[in-house]
């Protein structure tokens, strides 16, 4: 397995009860896993623990059998957090500037921008871009850190539904092409069912419930209206 969280417990400073309690979770290479659950169930906290931004009180988190440290995985926070003073091209190059072992040339970065339909924007600044475009840039920045595991914290939460659909299709196509492992947070159950192999439901009592999505790959937008997805969604809605 790629990623293993074993008996992970985390309590926020000055809080009495742990937000994550003895969590056990494994993720396989190339798997697309969604985390769902109400606010405050610790979805974002799990991602921050995996990145190494937070340190677990107990338990271990390992990536390819080694404890994770900062810089091991690609992390895309909720806000796009593009650097307003950097051009789009320079924004997606930031990972390579920080980690010397990332060999990303400007040419590669340019061809990526072309691939995601932002060819004409490489010299633009973030404030000239729409929400969907900014989100694509933020995702590219995460992707171009060249990590196997990508943690995406509600990347499409702030987008309108049409843009969101486009972005989902786009994300699926990239994921299929690159064999990345993705852990994805969302509040949108339909989105979780449509994109994931497996859905992890975080409950109020600090337990989790796993559901495997029985839809075949590759996924198409028509599947959004399939019976399987509708039923799965209904079932999840009851449990959440």
């Amino acid at each position: 397995m790629t990623l293993l969280l074993k008996n992970v417990t985390y309590t926020f400073p000055k809080k009495e009860y742990p937000v994550i309690d003895k969590l056990y979770l494994t993720v396989q290479q190339g798997e697309f896993v969604s985390l769902i659950g109400k606010s405050g169930t610790g979805k974002s906290t799990i991602l921050k623990l995996i990145t190494g931004l937070l340190t677990a009180d107990e338990g271990e988190i390992s990536l390819y059998k080694k404890p994770v440290t900062l810089g091991d995985v690609g992390y895309m926070p909720q806000k796009d957090l593009l650097f307003p003073w950097r051009t789009i091209l320079d924004n997606i190059m930031i990972g390579a500037e920080i980690q010397k072992e990332i060999k990303l040339s400007k040419e590669d970065a340019r061809s990526w921008l072309k691939k995601v339909g932002l060819k004409d924007y490489e010299q633009a600044y973030p404030n000239q871009l729409s929400g969907g475009m900014r989100q694509r840039v933020a995702f590219l920045r995460t992707l171009l850190t060249e990590k196997d595991v990508l943690l995406l914290d509600e990347p499409f939460g702030a987008l309108d539904s049409i843009t969101k659909k486009e972005m989902q299709a786009w994300l699926l196509s990239i994921w299929q092409e690159l064999d990345k492992t993705i852990i994805f947070i969302t509040h949108d159950l339909e989105e979780a069912c449509y994109l994931s192999d497996r859905i992890i439901l975080l409950k109020d009592d600090r337990t989790i419930e796993e559901t495997t999505v029985p839809l075949p790959r590759p996924r198409y937008q028509e599947m959004l209206h399939s019976q399987i997805l509708l039923e799965l969604r209904k079932e999840l809605e009851k449990k959440i």
Binding site: L53, L70, G71, V73, Y75, P77, L81, G95, I98, Q99
Partner: peptide, 8 residues
């Protein structure tokens, strides 16, 4: 945090 997550 974003930069730290990249190992900065």
């Amino acid at each position: 945090e974003l930069l730290r997550s990249m190992g900065a």
